[in-house]
Simulated assay, not measured.
Amino acid sequence: MRLLEYEAKNLLSACEVPIPRGKVFAINELQAIAAPIVLKSQVPIGGRGKLGGVQIVRRQSDVESIARKMFNLKIKGFLPSKLLAEEILDISREFYFSLNINRQTAAIELLAHAGGGIEIESQDTAAFFRRDIVNEKFESLADELADYLDIADKAFLLQDIIENAYRCFVDNDCLMLEINPLILTKDGRLIAGDAKITVDDAAAFRHLDWQFEDNSTEHNFVILNRDGAVATIANGAGLAMATVDAVVASGLVPANFLDIGGTATSDKVLDCFRQITTLDNINVIIINIFGGIVRCDEVARAIIDAQRQIPDLPKLAIRLSGNRESEARQLLAQYNLPLFDSLEAILEDIS
């Protein structure tokens, strides 16, 4: 379950990670917003800044007109029901900071870069700071990271960020926690300027207080490697993980983990394709669906819609098995989209 920015920041703030002062509001609450302010569209997708989803408003007379335009601005298919209004920070530097699950080492990995912000995806992956968090040795890790970021005098602040973000990650069953940018202000504070968090919805039974909007999708989308050439779509966490593992075992590099869940509709599957196309290096999308509750013909319609609606869609390698498989096969045949009998056959074909 991918949280909206304000939801992610609420979790961070509860764990004492500093966030900007701000207020979430709906379109009927514009009168409560005072400039100067940063307005941020609350949609469950990255890249908002380049698409008009983040606006600095300095004059009170401009607040209502700009906010109304943002409420009506679709970003990669998502229309916000809320905006986040935040204080304008006096920025000295911007860093990238994230925690992810390193599946190879079965550890929580800290990933950081000295050049955060909207251009982070263009950074050389070899230049990132990468460390597994082992035995919760936060002080030494903070010293290392402070040296890497060239802010040695802020090591004690970094230690608080690392320790509290780690606590947020563990306590909330996170799959991914990203702060981009982590802002160093001119008065020497470290603040989470933007935040993305994906929580494991399979752990919801442990969190009866969760009341997230979850109005985006009913699937888990986690980026594993932005340089990966193979994207994966599967249903059920077990099948999704097995699909990723099979891709790795075949010598290929998976870019993502994506579980569309058990009740995915055509619209929700189409949204999965849109998220995948935000990754730059994909040359094939593996679709591995076992239809139980999920209907294979619904997935097939989404595949057809994706080909119609998304320019330059990568090659598709499709396995649909189970509920309404024959109907799906007939639909895809009309568009010359063959089905593979197994994941092994797909991997043999694309390797």
Rank of each mutant, 00 (worst) to 15 (best):
L3G: 02
L11N: 05
S13M: 14
C15H: 14
P18W: 00
K23V: 15
I33H: 09
A34Y: 13
P36C: 14
K40P: 02
S41Y: 05
V43A: 00
P44S: 00
K50D: 09
Q55R: 13
S61T: 14
E64R: 07
L73Q: 02
E87S: 05
F95T: 04
Y96T: 04
A106Y: 12
A106P: 00
A112C: 14
G117N: 07
G117R: 11
E119N: 15
I120Y: 07
D124K: 14
T125Y: 07
I133P: 02
E136G: 02
K137L: 09
E144C: 12
I151N: 12
I161C: 02
A165Q: 03
D173T: 07
A192Q: 07
G193F: 00
G193D: 01
G193L: 05
A202S: 15
W210C: 07
F212I: 01
E218W: 03
I223D: 04
T243V: 09
D245G: 12
V253R: 10
D267Y: 04
C272W: 05
N283D: 15
I287A: 00
I293Y: 06
R295D: 09
E298L: 05
Q309D: 07
Q309R: 04
P314E: 02
L316V: 06
R319F: 04
L320D: 01
S321D: 08
S321R: 12
D341R: 14
L343K: 02
